[in-house]
Write a protein that binds this DNA or RNA. Structure first.
Lengths: 199, 199
DNA sequence: GGCCCCGATGTCAGTTCGTGACATCACCAT
DNA sequence: ATGGTGATGTCACGAACTGACATCGGGGCC
């Protein structure tokens, strides 16, 4: 057995999530988190840049998953279909960790500072996706917009997935939300394809 | 003449922008800002919630402008056209303050903490716009998505307007970017209005 | 085996952010 | 004139972060 208990980082993440959940983000000090993990405050800051970052795993597989899926999507797809494909590929990353994701979301939803950080992470994700799209040959603006639309849809879908308890899968919500996006240019008193749409 | 020099808040905003510009956000302390404005640190915090907030005017007319424009847009417009209308209405708010906006953007672009705050402000704006759209009778998801897409387009357009020196107007960039968005969301096997769309 | 470097952690002191409590004092309405 | 009001100042403090240096077990090397 080593000099220290293993997985200090993991212990800090766990302690932080528990404390944030139980007594709120503001009411929790970094010293408390460290103590609960059997470490010191200084060590916390060696693993995480700040008090918020502990909720956003450093080994987040999402950017890579998204980028790879975007890169390997069939070549003939329209921009938004590439994004659709990538998001559906990435959905399992969340679905496998459903419990953890829900706990995280509850904490984040309760605190504006954490929401800010969440938005920053999503923006970084959009930026990554946009780069992958550009590397498929898309124009800068087209790529950026498609990525932003995709992430917006993902965000909305994720919210509904976390909230609603209909047993729907995240992928289903993503699909639905992106379908809505595809209807956005249509006036609601028009039948574009002859199929019925909401009044 | 009053007991104090007038417009303490304005002086703080000015001092902060100058210092952030000159020596960077991190290297500037709140005490410095207050001193330059002829006030104390404590007074700074009576006017602004934190060190970042001083860059984001409290009397920001954008939310109201956007909401009103969305509310008063012609009734038959497609969701994205309402958003388009609202954004074009709001553009002058930025164009009138071009110098200030550019200075602010330079400071923000140089600091991740400020970018986070900027994203939060944009998200709040999107939320406001979404509410206005719902009050026009749009579905929750449709409204949220249209608002997010609109703000994404606005963000991208704003970036290009601030960066490029082609003499284009912000409204023009918005129009261009939203055109791109229309092509992205339009199902390419459908002709909603009879006008030609990209293949 | 003995030696030594490495790297994760601890210790400590210090700066800055942000807040609560209370003091001040020109202005204004009565 | 008098007392209330509101923007500011003063002080004290906790908590977020950071730099510099100490500690010490483990693993490689001879």
């Amino acid at each position: 057995m080593g000099r220290w208990k293993p997985d200090a980082r993991g212990r800090l993440e766990k302690a932080a999530l528990e404390l944030y959940n139980h007594q709120g983000f503001d009411a929790t000090t970094v010293a408390e988190i460290a103590a609960r993990a059997g470490l010191t405050e200084r060590t916390f800051y060696r693993h995480f840049a700040d008090k918020r970052e502990v909720l956003f795993p450093g080994d987040n597989p999402l950017p890579d998953t998204l980028a790879k899926a975007a890169a390997t999507a069939p070549g003939a797809l329209a921009p938004l279909e590439v994004v659709n494909h990538a998001l559906i590929e990435a959905a399992p990353v969340f679905e496998e960790r459903a419990d953890l994701v829900r706990q995280r979301q509850a904490v984040i939803a309760a605190n504006p500072e954490l929401q800010e950080r969440e938005l920053a992470k999503l923006a970084a994700l959009a930026s990554t996706l946009a780069r992958a799209l550009r590397e498929r040959g898309l124009e800068t603006t087209t790529a950026a917009l498609a990525a932003e639309i995709g992430l917006a849809a993902f965000k909305i879908a994720c919210e509904r997935w976390v909230t609603d308890r209909d047993g729907h899968t995240l992928a289903q919500y993503i699909q639905e939300t992106l379908d809505t996006a595809r209807h956005l240019t249509a006036r609601d008193d028009v039948r574009c394809t002859g199929q019925e749409e909401v009044a």
